[in-house]
Write a protein that binds this DNA or RNA. Structure first.
Lengths: 338, 338
DNA sequence: CTGAAAGCGCTAACAT
DNA sequence: ATGTTAGCGCTTTCAG
């Protein structure tokens, strides 16, 4: 029967107080007298009152939500970061709006749109290809980058990508590999570039020869890993080990070469990056570099909330450690052909 | 310097018209005169005006967003459904809020919360374990179930789960298997139960013996698949084929038994469900049942939007077809031991 | 400690 | 075709 939603007025009437008192009771219970508080709370319970977030937000000049902008929602890589974000935002009473940059024609334009739309109190960016210029908007909400990025001074939570690449190369070198290749992420992606740079740096530091033809371009997906596998299979002079910029590509590669009769790690060693869930369930389990993705989300959300609360547009850049995860996919190189 | 955000008043002043005209120009340009329209549009461009969504929503008694409630954000299974939802919601100018039911203590309570919070114009439920009673709220927003569910009359988009299970069993039986087992999803999950029911029904229809000890309980995750593998390895009398209620479990199982020296499909045939991305990149590629997840999201969003627009709380229940995906993980049973 | 009152920015009758 | 006006439901000074 109560088609109509109850408003703060209804509660005030039921409790015999003013709307201001109801509002106060709900916001800071300590400032109202115990008896009135109880009366209000009873009235709230009886009427089933819920504050209208839209009205509250309008009055308080905020939106109560945060936009998470990512390149592609369908990419499961982001799922855990989202979980980390949600675990902080939800208890803090912030809604989490998801938007992707790829669905429209121009990703930067999308960023600008969300920055100026006033639909959120803050943004979390998970797309490292957005251009820093798009952020130069006066009066824009606070933004946290939860991703490697080329822009300089933006609060961020990022991962030791270069160091991870070096760990991978170091491990392979220690196993005796000298012919090490790399499958990269998409060109223009800063993540991909940082890992590639880390790879090059480590190879040089260790004194291993760098064969440019052993650097294959991928785009982080399993399909691109499989494509790299086809390329590798046709090579005359193959590397004995490969470091992949993502586990997905490593898995796509490994599946294809295994079906072609290659044994991992006897014939070829593989090291991935990310430690996605499947990594430890492959046969052999993938040797990889772990990124604590949930933690990235948690820290990014905490950072953003503190910026929202203090009203500042700047903040620290936090670096999160990566961890080497040994698996069965990397072993000593095959004996040299006689 | 323009610290302050421009409001509709500023635009009205700049264009020399009333705020109502500005509002009209932006909402239904056809109803204002060409000259005024141009003046307003110029003023909008000059001032960089963006309508304040919160104020607009308050006035129009709507929120402009849709909440997607799922059991666990970190589960990549949902990523593609979200992509499908977003591809419809974003162009329609609806925000997509993500919330999960597992983070709190009581999932039903969370549903009630979002149903009464007035934070969304509609909800999409992806959690089949929620109880139908939680929906009995007067004046609640429209809800679409994008998932198998036990509730009767709720608009929904679901998949032929039972038929998929039957396809899997039929395929295995045709290959010559008689000893077929099943690894289920979590108890209480309707998806899991429908697939189990489909499995039982198909076994019976074909006339194959049903061994209860060959029905292992999982929870859709890779880890639970691996746990099932450990159980299978210790069995005296093993089934020669297994149908899994999810690809994730199939992958977890296959990885573990392969590392234990079992050959798939020579020693054991495996059929999954879902056709997640990795399925075709495993070695052997997984034989599975495809669910068009993006499409599920698209249809659910379209259905919900039409309900929001027409103000109705009811709608059709749409069933989406599944497809058999042949892979390398199912083959003829091993020759009987002599 | 509580109430009155003034809007937050916008849209939709209703007038003109 | 455009302007005037009255709120949407809430929070927050400012008085008392």
């Amino acid at each position: 029967m109560d088609r109509k939603v109850t408003t703060i007025q209804d509660v005030a009437r039921a409790a015999g107080v003013s709307t201001a008192t109801v509002s106060r009771t709900l916001a800071k219970p300590s400032v109202v007298a115990k008896t009135t508080r109880e009366a209000v709370l009873t009235a709230v319970a009886e009427t089933g009152y819920r504050v209208n977030a839209t009205a509250s937000n309008l009055r308080r000049q905020r939106t109560g939500s945060v936009i998470v902008l990512l390149p592609n929602i369908a990419n499961p890589f982001f799922a855990q970061i989202l979980a980390g974000l949600a675990s902080v935002l939800t208890p803090a009473q912030y809604g989490m709006l998801i938007a992707d940059t790829q669905s429209g024609p121009d990703p930067d334009e999308r960023l600008t749109h969300y920055l100026t739309s006033g639909q959120a109190d803050g943004l979390v960016l998970l797309d490292g290809t957005l251009s820093p210029e798009a952020l130069e908007i006066p009066g824009r909400p606070p933004v946290v980058m939860a991703c490697e990025w080329m822009g300089r001074d933006l609060p961020s939570v990022r991962v030791e990508n270069g160091r991870g690449a070096a760990m991978a190369v170091g491990h392979l070198a220690r196993l005796g590999h000298r012919a090490i290749g790399h499958v990269t992420g998409p060109q223009g992606n800063v993540l991909a570039e940082t890992r590639l740079k880390g790879f090059r740096g480590a190879m040089e530091a260790i004194g291993l020869p760098l064969h440019e033809e052993w650097i294959l371009e991928g785009d982080f997906t399993m399909d691109s890993g499989a494509a790299a596998a086809r390329a590798w299979l046709t090579m005359e002079d193959r590397p004995t080990a490969l470091f992949f910029a993502s586990d997905e590509m490593a898995a796509g590669f490994m599946g294809l070469v295994q079906r072609a009769g290659i044994r991992v790690p006897q014939d070829l060693s593989i090291v991935g990056f990310d430690n996605i869930e499947i990594a430890q369930h492959l046969s052999p389990a993938l040797t990889t570099i772990r990124q604590p993705r949930t933690h990235i989300g948690v820290r990014a959300a905490e950072l953003l909330l503190s910026m929202i609360e203090t009203g500042t547009r700047t903040g620290p850049s936090e670096v999160i450690e990566v961890e080497f995860i040994p698996g069965g996919s990397a072993g000593p190189p095959p004996p040299a052909r006689s």
